[in-house]
């Protein structure tokens, strides 16, 4: 993460939450506008909207906070750390 060539695992996780949350949120909104003929149990709680929205927000946070460019900008002149003594993954 600290080297500009390294991407944090948390960035991949943020990306996953962002895309999945966005798709679920969009599907939830579509279902509210076009209610299904056979809704799931507790459809009235609109879990897709709040759960998808929560994942989407978490995805934005992690994708931004651990973005490769942002991490690289933070450490432009730091010399490479010796192997086994880095905190490269988080």
């Amino acid at each position: 993460m600290l080297s500009r060539t390294r991407i944090s695992i948390w960035f991949f996780i943020g990306l996953s939450l962002l895309v999945n949350g966005g798709l679920i949120l969009a599907a939830g909104v579509y279902e509210v506008a076009n209610p299904p003929q056979h809704p799931v149990i507790l459809f009235n709680l609109h879990a897709s909207i709040w759960w998808g929205g929560l994942l989407f927000l978490l995805g934005i946070f992690y994708s931004y906070h651990f973005a490769p460019a942002r991490a690289g900008d933070k450490q432009p002149s730091r010399p490479p750390a010796p192997r086994g003594d880095t905190h490269a993954e988080c």
Partner: peptide, 15 residues
């Protein structure tokens, strides 16, 4: 999963 999860949530559950 099928009982409570609609489109999107079901895909995430299967994933």
């Amino acid at each position: 999963l099928a009982r409570y999860c609609g489109p999107g949530l079901l895909g995430l559950g299967i994933t």
